[in-house]
Nucleic acid binder design. Structure first.
Lengths: 340, 340
DNA sequence: CTGAAAGCGCTAACAG
DNA sequence: CTGTTAGCGCTTTCAG
């Protein structure tokens, strides 16, 4: 017997079909409380037979519990955030929490909008990229009364908890390695992104160490949009034409670094003797390149995992007092493009 | 005056703070119905002052309307689905609908689970990759009583509507071009993915045309996991060692194709005279390569856009009768790796 | 233009 | 182990 109206099924339908009270049906479907094996089977059979899918909207309203974790990140198109997501998903797999993603495109206003939208679903927690947010966003986050983990960056004050690396230190370390390798004429290539605070912090740490070593940036070049690999080529070519005595190129991400590397190899430049190169992120893609680009791992999946674990712990055990700051340590991999 | 309990704010709080009935507050916050400019201002001020964020759970339950579109895709880590997502987001921007993503990892059981999970939130529509689903999944989709758009593939029967390209035809077209270019000893390299039906359909179309031309596949090689670019190198090397007289390599995706291309160029192979190459997808990344890989655009963002438009149209106008099948036509770009 | 009453479909909290 | 009774916070509907 099939239903002929298309009204979605409710618990009541299952209750009637199985001859068991709504309450007990609910218990069976959620594996809560003791139910006799007999009625359990009856209910499950009826539910399956009808094709019943519970209504979480109603359940969430009644129980005041929503097993969703809002994850708010700037972008999905570079390699970095997908990997963070992987870490989050994996960490949440054992729990009954589910990640829901919102994208901000590095725009504070959009972040605010997305945040508002997500918070209106009353999630169990928020994982959000970065430490820089509009006042309104901070207020919402604080008022939400749920665990908030800010990720990727630890150079600043968290609203609640932060998990990440110090991009300032990352920039410093790379600068250190480059100085020690003896490079002198250094060019910087990166995205034209006033709102990418982490790239900015790396750049600041980098130039500061350089300055201490008495080295001033020889040249810089910025881009926006387009295929990063192609842009890497273009930027590199442009810079070498303008400043031919460059002996090191520091890229703000691995993708443009890879483009630069391919370009230089084609030109027959001796890497790293004539020109050294380094990127940032440690993306998997690099492994297919003819030469390994020097880079620095940003601990992406590690950060995702840890952030999710914190939300999970706080959700099950709100009293547990966890550290407000968890800092990972990025490590340089020298590859074949940075002398040691 | 600040509240000292951390109970989330409700409409009632705004109502009391503004001295306006809950109902009217609700009207103001949703821009529904006529409200005098005066009370509107009072309400808005109170809401903002308190930092009220509406509870969509309650709203959705009361109105029986959820402005969410479930998007179910196999993966986010290759370049293809992020671009579909971009198309969807853009198309939904004008509407009040919001995409929510679920990932299946190409696993039918996981697809079933994710689908169940999403449907329990009673979304306004579903966009799901592929035409192959478990019986249970099909049943759920049919029973949901909401618009369902299956995307990426049109070789099969849709549950409701399908938007995509024919992967069979895509394989055929590429085979045609390769045959016409005069290549004879052809190798296939792809993912070891019995569950990637679209790759399988391309392969079938490809071999069929080859067979008609009296050409049998000279060799094949499959991989799984790892960096696709690196895998492309390895597979290519392995195949050339085993079958040195190969004169064309057909890759099931651009990423491994790019790896193969880089490998061959390093080896000094004359591409495309000595060995021709082709991939599939038309990913942006290719533009940064030293040579343009022949490929075929899969119309990814176009498909996402169209699918979202259909959901939007059906949501606002349930009566509108739209075609059940929308087929896009993929076009070969010959690049520099396929003779013409 | 504004308000009061009655649920939406489920679950918490009690009773048995 | 099972059922009953009240809501969860909003919106629909119907009166003013």
């Amino acid at each position: 017997m099939t239903r002929h109206d298309s009204r979605p099924l409710t618990l009541r339908d299952v209750s009637e079909a199985s001859g068991v009270s709504e309450m007990t049906v609910s218990r069976v479907l959620r594996n809560r409380g003791d139910v006799s094996e007999n009625t359990r089977k009856k209910v499950l059979a009826a539910a399956k037979q009808l094709g019943y899918v519970p209504n979480k909207i109603a359940g969430a309203l009644a129980s005041q519990r929503v097993n969703l974790v809002a994850v708010i990140i700037p972008s999905m198109s570079n390699m970095v955030f997908p990997e963070v997501m992987t870490g989050i998903s994996r960490a949440l797999e054992g729990t009954d929490l589910q990640p829901v993603v919102g994208i901000t495109d590095y725009l504070p206003e959009k972040e605010e909008k997305v945040l508002y939208e997500m918070l209106s679903w009353r999630p169990s927690g928020v994982i959000i990229a970065g430490l820089e947010h509009s006042d309104a966003s901070r207020a919402m986050l604080r008022a939400a009364g749920i665990p908030v983990v800010e990720i990727m960056d630890v150079d600043g004050m968290p609203i609640d908890t932060m998990v990440g690396i110090s991009h300032r230190v990352a920039g410093e370390k790379m600068a250190q390695a480059i100085v020690e390798a003896g490079y002198k004429r250094i060019g910087f290539l990166g995205t034209k992104m006033p709102l990418d605070h982490r790239a900015r912090k790396r750049f600041e740490g980098f130039t500061q160490v350089m300055a201490k070593a008495g080295i001033e940036m020889a040249d810089q070049e910025f881009y926006s949009g387009g295929s990063a690999l192609a842009k890497g080529r273009e930027l590199t070519e442009a810079m070498l034409n303008r400043t031919p005595d460059i002996d090191f190129l520091y890229y703000s991400n691995d993708m443009i670094g890879a483009g630069g590397l391919l370009y230089l190899l084609e030109k027959g430049v001796d890497v790293p003797a004539q020109i050294g190169l380094a990127g940032f992120n440690g993306v998997e893609l690099l492994q297919g390149l003819p030469r390994q680009l020097a880079t620095m791992d940003a601990c992406r999946s590690e950060i995702g995992r840890k952030a999710a674990e914190i939300i999970a712990e706080r959700t099950t055990n709100p009293e547990s007092d966890l550290p407000k700051k968890i800092e990972m340590t990025p490590v340089i991999s020298f590859g074949d493009t940075l002398k040691r």
